[in-house]
Design a protein around this nucleic acid. Structure first.
Lengths: 194, 194
DNA sequence: GACAAAAGTGCACGGGCGTACTATTTTATC
DNA sequence: GATAAAATAGTACGCCCGTGCACTTTTGTC
């Protein structure tokens, strides 16, 4: 059994029970491996958690970031980021919803290497967004006084509230509201200064 | 030891480890009670989780909803909701951040009474927001074509991204960005239709 | 085909978990 | 102050946890 296959399954499991609820015994069971056989691949549970997070991140890069970066620079690329991001649960379906959202609320007060890794990943992602917005400004698509970091946090909010409404509340309108909210964000960034 | 005191501590503990990570043994230890003595108060762990959630909700009502509802109807009340909500981590400080955010990502795929309760609470809260917005419309403060449910989801997004940025990323600007984002939301709702 | 490396197994350990059951102590009521 | 009720304690149970260790099987290389 390849490590990739293990991490793939572990990622799905974590999305349901969290990185803390992820258990070597259960993971081994589901993969029809002995507990010690699986354990040997990683030398600790913490390593397993770390690698699950890294695996998920590389998926995210392939499914969201890379394709979006191939869109024309400026506003279209910002739009592409949003579109791909919103499609991320479909291009990479996990049984328990986005693993990063889960991990974020789980690890936000648990110091350690796993948290540190997640923080770095999230900061990197927010910076990618901010930089894309910056380019949209220098390209003349967005207003000069748009704050890229503000835009990034706002966009993140659109995704998080969409996740909340769709996964917890099962609200069928969550998706379309997210699109509407992004549209408002985009238009506000374009609008000429009063 | 009164049940209120137990729930109070259990709420703080849950905010750190989650409702699933909440453990009767640890809770008993920290309260200097025997495990079975504490267990007798609730007849199962699920009951404990449920009551923790109910306790937190009643706190939220007292700290956020009631005070906000005493503001003048219409736009000021919408503003009051946001202000109180943003202050909620301060008026009711928990060691591990908002317990509802934690619970939402933990329970979003775990059917059962605890999840059902959380969903009802969240829907109620979103409806309170939407109704307040509705009143702001009939009062003539907000435009007629403002969608109250859309506004509620957007506002939720502002809070969630603020929580994410401040708790996980420890970003000192998270708060002020949230205020800025709400300001944009409010102004967009006021602005005369083009 | 020998042989080293890698992958996987079996078993054991100490510990924490939720939950019964029974006993004891505290508290409130008359 | 007796007595019923409520709160707390003690102990035990089976289960799953992460991890270590010795062993066997598979795999790839010369």
């Amino acid at each position: 059994m390849t490590r990739q296959a293990i991490l793939e399954h572990a990622m799905g499991l974590s999305s349901m029970v969290g990185l803390g609820g992820l258990t070597i015994g259960r993971l081994a069971d589901e993969l029809e491996l002995s507990k010690s056989g699986l354990f040997a691949h990683f030398r600790s549970k913490e390593t397993l958690q770390t690698q699950v997070l890294e695996h998920a991140a590389s998926r995210f890069v392939d499914s969201v970031i890379k394709p979006a970066l191939s869109a024309p620079r400026g506003e279209p690329r910002v739009q592409a980021i949003f579109d791909r991001w919103l499609e991320w649960p479909n291009t990479n379906p996990l049984p328990g919803g986005c693993i990063f959202v889960q991990a974020a609320s789980e690890l936000d007060d648990r110091p350690g290497p796993v948290r540190d890794l997640l923080v770095r990943q999230q900061k990197d992602w927010l910076e990618v967004i901010a930089n894309t917005v910056r380019t949209a400004i220098t390209e003349g698509h967005f207003r000069e006084d748009v704050d890229p970091e503000q835009f990034a946090q706002d966009l993140y909010g659109v995704m998080l509230s969409c996740h909340h409404a769709s996964r917890l509340l099962r609200d069928p309108k969550a998706l379309s509201r997210a699109r509407h909210a992004f549209e408002a964000l985009r238009l506000a960034a374009r609008m000429p200064h009063s």
